[in-house]
Nucleic acid binder design. Structure first.
Lengths: 206, 206
DNA sequence: GTCTATAACCGGATAGAC
DNA sequence: GTCTATCCGGTTATAGAC
């Protein structure tokens, strides 16, 4: 269909950018076609000319966003020589990408609740590169570099620890730092190193 | 105002139950007063008679839910004799409560994005029992029971690892277990023990 | 492709009888 | 307190001119 975001500044590109920002902020149900049109610098009629319905426009955005995030995560699970190198790269990348796109986790979670069938159907053909990581973990276990651990739990640990500060930002800022934005930012800046060293300590045999 | 949920089966109670379920599933923007009325077994007019506007009804629910969850978390941070006892109790309780109320995290996060001012204002007077935990951690550090650690990061670690499997359920079920519900459930059942032992290993000095 | 104007609909809220 | 009927504003979507 359309070439992958090559021509910048076409009307379609402006619409997609505008729609993404509105859907990220307001969600599918809270978003207004009028606001998308406004941000794109066009009118509602033209918006419908390009994407017929709000639902179609939303799905278009969702598919793009999900695939791009999935790919990012998936690539960083690629074969690495050493498990601790993997941890370091993954944690840093994951936190950086999330910090730059803090709306995305919530955006995806909302759509899963709103329309689980579509999401499962759409993501059905995607496959996670878990095998490589699994091999790396098994190798590390066999050579006594790490204690025994389950891949799924390990992935949930690492992702959970990275994701939480992003998704719970308002709570953390309010209850940990009395609403202070700077303290939150410092916390986030120190997060990668903390998670990496915690995982090392947890995995390396005594 | 109203006594804390004492009289069961009054119309007001039925409305609150219905509203909670609809708001949990659809969010504020996706919820429909008609659907709430239907689930409560009444009509829209009566719904408005009790709570005047959708916004007021939503805030009523939100305040109740938030306060109850906050209280639960806060109580489990209360003074404990031993840090590892705290970890064990907190992780088990937190995962159990979340499993029973999987919609709540998303519900709260959405409202923070939708209406941050209201949430900050409403939660402004609530205070987290962090001090007790902090003392316990410092004591454990001084007696060399654990390695040095920061309270905020520690809380983010423990909450992130517990929350992730709940909030990302569809993703985990799809990409970890090829959509199999049973495998997900087993994963969740084993989660508490995994998190507890991981934290112990990470904290206890070699 | 892009616009103005408007149709068609939906959903929150109210009036008023009982 | 509870209902039926209705209003009215907002939102998606379309018609039709340029």
């Amino acid at each position: 269909m359309e070439n992958k975001e090559e021509n910048i500044n076409t009307t379609e590109q402006q619409i997609l950018e505008a729609a993404k920002s509105v859907f990220f902020e307001k969600g599918m149900d809270g978003a207004r076609m009028q606001e998308i049109a406004d941000r794109a610098g066009i009118n509602k009629a033209l918006l419908h000319y390009y994407f017929r319905t709000k639902e179609k426009l939303f799905k278009h955005i969702f598919e793009n966003v999900f695939q791009s995030i999935f790919q990012t995560v998936n690539q960083s699970i690629e074969q690495k020589a050493d498990l601790f190198v993997f941890i370091e790269i993954f944690v840093k990348n994951y936190i950086r990408v999330l910090s730059q796109n803090p709306y995305i986790p919530n955006f995806i979670i909302n759509e899963m609740n709103r329309n689980p069938k579509f999401v499962v159907e759409f993501t059905g053909h995607l496959r996670l590169n878990k095998n490589n990581l699994e091999k790396l973990i098994i190798k590390s276990m066999e050579t006594n570099q790490i204690i025994p651990i389950n891949v799924d739990h390990f992935l949930a640990d690492i992702m959970g620890m990275c994701l939480f500060p992003i998704i719970a930002k308002p709570i953390i800022q309010e209850f940990f730092f009395d609403g202070d934005q700077n303290s939150y930012q410092q916390f986030l800046d120190a997060r990668s190193e903390h998670v990496i060293s915690l995982l090392k300590k947890a995995l390396i045999p005594n």
